[in-house]
Amino acid sequence: MKKAYKTEILLNEKQQQKVHQTIGVCRYVYNLYLTTAQKHYKDTGKHLSGYDFSKWLNRVHTKQTDFWIKEVSSKAVKKSIMNGDQAFKNFFKGRAKFPKFKKKKHQEVKAYFPKNNPTDLLVERHRIKIPTLGWVQLKEYGYIPSNAKVSSCTVSQKAHRYYLSVLCEVEQKQEVQVPIHDGIGVDLGVTDFATCSHHETFKNINQTQKVKKLEKNLKRQQRKLSRSYELNKHRKRGEFCAKNRQKQLIKVQKLHARLANIRHEYIRSVVNRLVKTKPAHITIEDLNVKGMMKNRHLSKAVAQQNFSYLKEWLIAKCKQNGIELRQVDRFYPSSKLCSCCGHKKVKLSLSERIFRCDNCDAELDRDFNASLNLKYATEYTVLT
């Protein structure tokens, strides 16, 4: 069984320079492949594969120009080319949109390092040996198992921090749990993050003072960064120093990263709480997030909830613990059905937070009623 571990690493100045150089070359080669493939398709009507581009890059292009491509790991360059090739294949098959060029400020490119020699990717308690970088110190001691067989790793940078993701081969240990609850229905929302059928409600972390204070600071720092661009827009080249602007950009990136980490950690804690109750199944609904994002009054609040990350983490944890994860259709009227008698209420506005049944006169909280309907839903698909 293959398992990935991601942790922060501490690099010295020489290693930081090597990582920046490798990531910069990978980004340049990726963008060069996109440009060459688009031009080749317009001229011939055929797709330029990553292998053909790699041959042209090594035999023709690097001998005529861009000699500095050879100064970094060839495996990392080859991996960036194959990532571009896979992006085009996903576009042709309709699985993704048209590939976009990588930008430096987005920090999307990662440096790939495979295991070339038996002495590569040796893991100790506090360090790991990466090809072309040497021994690198781990910030979290003992997180990566020292007895695991590491096949490859990627180094990434985000908000002036460096992260290592390793792919290890570990023994598969499936935990078989005896279910305590018959099932849990989870209704997701904006007012409350999740309302469960076993009388547990998870609040919206974006409404806390800590997150609001960080967002206010982020707004202030973004305004300061934008002002620096506007002041230097009409000046001549060489009349200003970009070091202060780069410092301000790092401040903004750190605030973005901190907010993302707070939200992701909260989602992981919610999923762990749900899994530790040992239910027979967990039922969620297929939300139309794309349609909800079109509402300009709710788009920011919906994006901050990060429902896609919750779904990914739920699938992984339920598979690990042997719990069945169910998903009902997005057109299932979970909020309009009465959980007591099954009567459907035709008109139900968003302002009505208390569900009152017209048939049996039952009064329940709107979200709790929806979670009960999700728990006892009979038409669903099992997510694996």
Rank of each mutant, 00 (worst) to 15 (best):
A4K: 11
R161W: 00
F53Y: 08
R326T: 04
G142S: 11
C168D: 00
Q17N: 14
V176F: 08
E13R: 15
Y141R: 12
P179G: 13
R59I: 04
S334H: 05
Y229V: 08
G183P: 12
A87R: 08
V170R: 02
Q222S: 14
L231C: 11
Y332P: 13
N321T: 10
R353M: 07
E239I: 04
I267M: 06
I23R: 00
W135L: 14
E324C: 14
S146G: 09
D182K: 10
H61P: 07
C357W: 00
S299D: 05
I23C: 10
S308R: 13
L231P: 08
K336V: 02
I284F: 01
W56H: 07
S146C: 07
N90E: 06
V136A: 01
F101K: 07
A280H: 12
S349L: 12
M1T: 15
T381I: 02
Y28R: 14
P333S: 08
L122A: 10
G189K: 14
L298E: 14
Y30S: 14
C241E: 15
C338Q: 06
E8G: 08
S308F: 04
A76H: 00
C341N: 07
S156M: 05
Y229C: 05
E71P: 08
I69F: 01
K100I: 01
W68D: 13
S165D: 03
D329Q: 03
E108C: 02
R268S: 10
S54N: 13
Q107N: 05
S80C: 11
P114I: 05
N204P: 12
V346L: 07
K212V: 11
L374Q: 10
K213P: 04
E175P: 12
T208Y: 10
S80A: 15
I205F: 06
A37C: 04
R161G: 03
Q207R: 12
V109T: 15
L298V: 10
V211Q: 13
S335F: 04
L57R: 02
L348E: 06
Q15Y: 02
Q320R: 13
H343G: 03
G189R: 12
L218M: 12
Q305K: 09
E379W: 00
Y266H: 12
A76T: 15
K300T: 00
K129Q: 07
C153F: 02
V186R: 08
T384D: 03
L167H: 09
K46A: 14
A377V: 03
E108T: 12
T378C: 13
V170G: 03
E352N: 14
R220Y: 05
R223C: 06
F67A: 14
V155A: 11
V271G: 07
A242Y: 07
T119N: 13
D365T: 13
L249R: 15
A87D: 01
R366Y: 05
K105S: 08
D192K: 13
N373K: 01
K3A: 11
E285A: 14
K251M: 09
E285H: 02
L249T: 11
R127W: 02
R258P: 09
S371H: 10
R245K: 13
Q304I: 02
V271Q: 06
Y141I: 15
E108H: 03
L259W: 00
T22C: 11
I315V: 12
S269G: 08
V136C: 11
D367M: 00
Q137C: 09
K55V: 06
R220A: 11
